[in-house]
Design a protein around this nucleic acid. Structure first.
Lengths: 195, 195
DNA sequence: GTTAGCATGTAAGGAGTTACATGATTTT
DNA sequence: AAAATCATGTAACTCCTTACATGCTAAC
């Protein structure tokens, strides 16, 4: 049913699939990954790890190096964790394309089939389209907004969402384009070379 | 000290300055305003209104129309509420330029001095700049990211933030440009005609 | 007359932050 | 030797969502 709280769980499982890690580093990676919002605190990470340990999704491992200088607890995914990760990544539905969840799923898209990827991308796109429609509709009703800053904020918001819709469309096309040729991954559709 | 929860309070105070309203409509406006994220539920709005009533920031008023057909409770700001609103809007500091709070402050920028506006805009901009620097720095360290989707997500994120920085810069320039001529409001710097 | 939307609330519970608490190791 | 940063945790608290509960009014 993927409650909101499974977000951390999914992210941790995904990261640990790239190699064993201890909590402190997990947190840094997590913050880099979804750090465009607020930072994840220890107060939520460590309890989450404990919970996953109890659920046998992850386990403690001894680092392969001869001796570890630091007192750190290194985690790795278990088989059950791998299964759970696959299950979560295969979920299509509202849970998959809500703001936070979408980013995380996208980050681990390599672990899924193209079919799933397309469904998630398309779901996300229509979700955003709905928002645009709703705002446009409600804007037509209230109309009277003449405040300069309110208008500017509205405009910028709409433009940002429209931009994300275009981004998604490019990605969808790239996925579809890659259907025939099993060769290389589709070229990134980066239109604007920034910096 | 402006905890996170004061967000609703500030928004309600601001909206009620544009005229008395009942809860249901307040919620609709709120959702339209900061609705790019998740929707505000009744479970958080009504208790917040009750709390503001107790604090004498708002009061119940009888609608000016002869008879109201519906059983609805219309709220208006009190003098104390106006004072509190001014106080909150004058706050400069981290609380003012965090993601959610910034949008709300910006929405009610008309109620503040240009000096405050500039400080908030600049604060927000350096906040975003910090994030970009941090990501760029940490990206240089871990380097090894070769996953196509991880890279693409990173790129899109950076571009979005860079775009917002440019937006803020334009706004800052517009504010500064309006300093000399007390004539009309500065022209909106909308560079890209979308839609 | 029945459905859809307006309108207001409460109770339980989840998720995460803040603040606290502790100590090792590396750098300056 | 001190400061910074690595590293792990817990307890209290806050905010918010979900689900429940109720009843009116407009439209079909």
């Amino acid at each position: 049913m993927a409650r909101r709280g499974d977000t951390i769980e999914l992210a941790v499982l995904g990261l640990l699939h790239e190699g064993p890690m201890h909590g402190y580093e997990l947190r840094k990676r997590l913050n880099l990954m979804l750090g465009w919002g607020r930072l994840l605190s220890y107060g939520s990470l460590y309890p989450a790890l404990k919970k996953m340990l109890r659920g046998n999704l992850i386990e403690e491992v001894v680092p392969s190096g001869p001796q570890s200088r630091r007192q750190r607890i290194v985690y790795a995914v278990t088989e059950l964790g791998t299964a759970e990760f696959s299950r979560l990544m295969s979920e299509v539905g509202p849970a998959a394309w809500e703001d936070d969840n979408f980013d995380i799923r996208f980050r681990f898209f390599s672990s899924t089939d193209m079919e799933i990827r397309l469904r998630v991308l398309e779901g996300r796109r229509s979700r955003l389209q709905e928002r645009l429609d709703r705002v446009q509709r409600e804007l037509a009703m209230t109309q009277k907004e003449v405040d300069r800053y309110a208008t500017e904020l509205q405009r910028h918001g709409v433009e940002s969402v429209e931009r994300e819709v275009r981004w998604l469309s490019d990605l969808i096309n790239a996925e579809r384009g890659a259907q025939g040729n099993g060769a290389a991954a589709p070229e990134a559709p980066s239109s604007a070379p920034s910096t």
